[in-house]
């Protein structure tokens, strides 16, 4: 039996999409580039020390002095190693992916929570997105959006959005049935039920999803650098190709620091949400 020409089919679909939807891809590209550059320029414009002070203050507000101290020391170390600018580029890429993931993921999660049919369509798609090796969808991303930061963001979003969708869906479905009944019994519309009850109660779960999304998009930065996304990932990639262990370690350490700071910040937001459960 001859081989199924699955590769040919996919390629022809991608080709058709590329020619057919070129204007759309262009618009998406411009928007994403705008967001990334906006964030990156703002961060670059701030002197490193000011940025570090602000981040430390935020760390103190969300966590306690321990977390604030870690933030300060970690970021100062990055600055000292001369990796500040690249780290900021990476942060811009990660934040852009996170924002897009939230914008896409939360509504999809809400949709899957409210309709079993939507969930039936979304869940297998998510499984596919999460298990397909990330390198594979870099290829069409490059075809559609060219080299640079945009396909990196797209690939990050595809890779990182599933937890936000899944946990938003889960959080809303886990709102106790009797509370939903109570909201309905008092004459809430679906929208009121959603915004006054379900989303507030699902918030810890949604925030956990967003936390996971940020972590996953951070893990994509090295891969994204292979298609031309600037940032600390490019330093890691460069060190690997030139077998420079020391430089590779420094760049890797910067990613770890960034990851820990982002992770703790979002986790503390979750906890703050749980405690101050007032609307």
């Amino acid at each position: 039996m001859s081989k199924l020409p699955l590769d040919k089919w996919v390629e022809s679909i991608v080709d058709a999409l590329e020619t057919g939807l070129k204007p759309l891809f262009h618009v998406i590209s411009v928007i994403i580039e705008g967001i990334v550059n906006g964030i990156a320029n703002t961060f670059h414009w701030l002197p490193a020390l000011v940025f570090i002070v602000l981040a430390t203050a935020l760390g103190y507000y969300l966590g306690k002095w321990k977390f604030a101290a870690f933030t300060a020391i970690g970021l100062l170390l990055i600055d000292n190693l001369g990796l500040w600018d690249h780290t900021v580029d990476t942060l811009a890429l990660v934040l852009t992916s996170a924002i897009l993931s939230i914008v896409i993921g939360v509504p999809l999660g809400i949709g899957s929570a409210q309709s079993d049919r939507v969930r039936g369509i979304v869940t297998p798609l998510l499984d596919f997105m999460q298990t397909m090796p990330a390198f594979v969808y870099l290829i069409p991303a490059v075809t559609f959006f060219g080299l640079g930061v945009v396909p990196g963001v797209i690939a990050s979003v595809i890779f990182a959005v599933p937890p936000t969708i899944r946990l938003t869906n889960l959080g809303i479905r886990q709102v106790p049935e009797d509370l939903v009944e109570a909201a309905e019994a008092f004459g809430s519309t679906s929208r009121q039920k959603l915004f006054k009850l379900q989303i507030p109660l699902a918030m810890p779960s949604i925030m956990t999803g967003i936390n996971q999304t940020i972590m996953l998009s951070l893990s994509m930065v090295v891969i994204a650098s292979m298609i031309g996304a600037q940032g600390i990932g490019a330093d890691v990639y460069g060190a690997v190709t030139q077998i420079k262990t020391g430089e590779g370690f420094e760049a890797g350490l910067a990613i770890v620091v960034l990851a820990i700071v982002l992770d703790r910040m979002t986790q503390h937001i979750v906890r703050k949400n749980r405690r101050g459960s007032n609307v």
Binding site: P176, D178, L179, E181, A182, A183, A185, F186, G187, S188, T189, Q192, K196, L197, P200, L201, S277, N278, V279
Partner: peptide, 27 residues
């Protein structure tokens, strides 16, 4: 028609008074 539930079904993220005013709020 209003309803009182077996397991109270109070909204945990709202204060007592915010729970009580819920019905009026949605109106």
């Amino acid at each position: 028609i209003s309803m009182v539930f077996q397991k109270f079904a109070l909204f945990p993220h709202r204060t007592v008074v915010e729970n009580v005013e819920y019905g009026l709020e949605v109106q």
